[in-house]
Write a protein that binds this DNA or RNA. Sequence first.
DNA 1: TTAGCCTTGAAG
DNA 2: CTTCAAGGCTAA
Length: 686
Amino acid sequence: MLTMSGRGELGISPVLLQAIAQTLSSHSSTREPPAPPNKDNNRLQAVKSSKNLKISKLSMDSVSSSTSSGLVSHLLQNLNEPISSLIPQSQLSRTLSPSLLPSNTKSDLSLLGISDDLRGSLSSHIKNRQRSMVISGDDLNNLLLKEEPSDDSDQSPSHSNSQNMNSVSSMLSALASQHMQESLSRKNKVGIRPELDSTVDVLTSNNSDVRSQPQIIIYSYINNGNQDMPSPQGSDLVLNDGEGIPDNQTTYRVLFQSPDDSSDNKQLFSSDMNFSCSSSHDVVPVTDAQNTVDGMNQPCPVCGDKVSGYHYGIFTCESCKGFFKRTVQNKKNFVCPKASDCTVNSFNRKKCPACRFKRCLLMGMKLEAIRQDRTRGGRSSYDGCATHLKNRVNPLEKRLQKKSIRLLDEMSSPSHDSDDGSKSHRNLVAILNHTTKQPATNSGTPHIPELLRDIMNLEPLLSDDDLPPETLMEIPFPEQALYSYMMQLAELRLYKLVRWARNLPQFGAISTDDQILLLQNCWSELIALSLCWRSIDTPNQISISSTHHITAEWAQHLGFEDVVIRLLNITDNFRKLFMDQFEYVALKVLLLITPDVKGLKEPKKIREFQDKLTEALLTYTSTHYSHLTDKFGALLLRLPELSRISFMSKDILIKSLPSSMASCGLLVELLKGDNKSESDGSGLKL
DNA sequence: TTAGCCTTGAAG
DNA sequence: CTTCAAGGCTAA
C-alpha cells in the first residue's frame, strides 16, 4: 500500500505492496478474459518497470550485488540527485488514468462540454469541497439539460464527455435523492433550508409518485447589484429529475449539501460518482476572504441556518453562536454516542452537541474569541476578528508564514491545497493549537522546538510535485492499473524517503551502515504513517495519492481489507487526537531513529538523537495542547499498531512476491532485507 | 438547553 | 456618533 503524507510525502504502505503481490499471484483466476496466467501480464508491468527504474542511474554493481543495502546505499550517497533522474521517465509515464481507478474526488472536468467559466467554477468547488456554488440559469441549464451524449462517433473523447456530464447530473440527482430520503423520513417536512419547506411540501404532498424520483432542489438568488440576495420563498426551484427549466435571467445557488450530508451522502457519492461532496468531515473552513465577500449571504457553515453575523471568527447563525459560547464558557465536554460523524443541520443540530461543536471548530470558530473575563461589548482583538473585512489572508497561513516561509510556500499554494486532503483537519488543529496556549504567556506564537522546525522544513522533499502526469493506459482491468500505479508511487516514494532521511538533522552524522539499518527497519512504518496522515481528512478512505482513495470495501475487493481497516482505525485515532503536522513529522523521525535495531554500530548516538526528539515532541505537545493532557503519550501509543500494520503487509507481500520481482527495485530490496532479517536473523549486512 | 433578542462598549 | 461582535437574558 502506498502511502503518502499530508503535504505530499510519499510512501507506500506495505499493504498495497501486499495487495499487489497477492493480485499478481492470484489474478488470473479471478478475472475472466486475458492475461495468460503467468506471462507478461500488464500486472507485471509495474514490477518490471520498477526494475528498469533504478538501473538507469545506478551502477550495475549495486544492483547486481543485490545486498539489500545496494540501492539504499546508493541513494544515501547521492542524496541530492533529483529523483527524476533516478527513475526513468518512461517508467513514470506509465501510470494509469485516474478514471480507471476508484476515485471519489475526481476533479478533471476538462472534457466536460460546458463553458470554461462553469468548468472552472465546478472544478474549484468540487476540489475544495465547498458546499454550495452560485450558478447562472444558463449554466444550470447546461448541467441539467444538455447532458445527452452529443455523439458517439468518436469513442474516447465523447465517451469521457458524456461520462463526465453524467457525473455532474448524477451528483445533482444523488443530492436530490438525499432530499427525498430526508423528506420521507421527515414526513414531508424537508428542505435544505427552512425557507424551502413550503416549496417542497407542495411537491411531495401533491404527488407521491414524485418521491420515488430524485429531486434537485435549488434556490434562486436575485441579482442585486454586486450582491446576491436570497430569493423570496416562492421562487425557489424544485427540479424534479431535471424537468425544471432554470430561468436564464436568474442566478441560482446549488447546494452540495443535503440535510443529511454525512454518512448516507457519502455512500451515495462514493460508489459510482466522481465527485466527493461535502460531508461533515469534508468541509472546508470558511476563510476570511470568503467571509468577507459573501459571508452574510451564505448559510451558516455549521448548520445551514440563516447567518446573523460574524461570530467568533466566522459568519454563523445566532444559534450556533450561542451554542459555541455556552459550550466553551461552561467547558462542556460532549461525547458523541456514535462515530463522531453525525450530521449537523438546522433540523438536527440539537441532537449531537459533540458533533456540532466539532463542526464549529472545523469551520473555524475560534476558542480565543470567547472572553475569559466575560466582559461585554467592545471589539475583540484576536486574529481574524475586526480585521476580517480588510485582511483576506487566512489566519492560519499568516501564522505559519511567521514560522516557516519555506513550509508555507508549500502549504499555501493552491495546487497543494487541492491535493492535500488534510486541509480542514489542519485548520482545525491550528485552531486548537493556536487557542490552547496560555493566554498569560507570550502574546506571540507558541514556541516550536527548533528540531521540529528543521524536520518540518524537509517535508518538501517528500512532496508529490514531481509525480508523473497520469496518462491513459490501456489496461483492461482497473485492478491492474491500480497495482501498477501503486507500485510506481511506492517506488518513487521510497526513493524520496531515503533522500529525506539523509537530510534529516543529525541523521547525517550517523554512519552510513547504521543509516541503512535504520531505514530498512522503518520504511514500511514510515509509509504507513504518511498514508494515515494523508488520509486524515478523508474518513473511511485511505488516500494513496491526491486523486486516488481506497475504502475498506474496495480493499476487500482487492484482498487487503484487513490492513486498510487498521490504517483507517489508526487514522481515526490521529484525527481524534488532533495530531498536527509538527507532531506528524516528529513521529516519522521517531520511527526512523530507533536505537534498538539489531546490528547498529552506534546505538548510543542514535539514542541521544531519539531523546532529543522525544523531548522536543513532548515540549511541543504540552505547550501547544495543554488541554489535551496526554497527547504525547497517546501519539506514541499509536506507533506499535503502525508496526503491526507494516509487519502484516510485508509478510503478505513477501509470501506472494513473484520471482520476477525478486531482484529489482528499491521496494523489493527493502523487502528482501526484511525477509532476510526475519528468516535467518542475520539482519542486513552491509 | 436552546435560540432569539437585548445590552454593552471598544474601535473607527 | 455608528458599528458590530462580544456577553446576558429568558421564554420555550
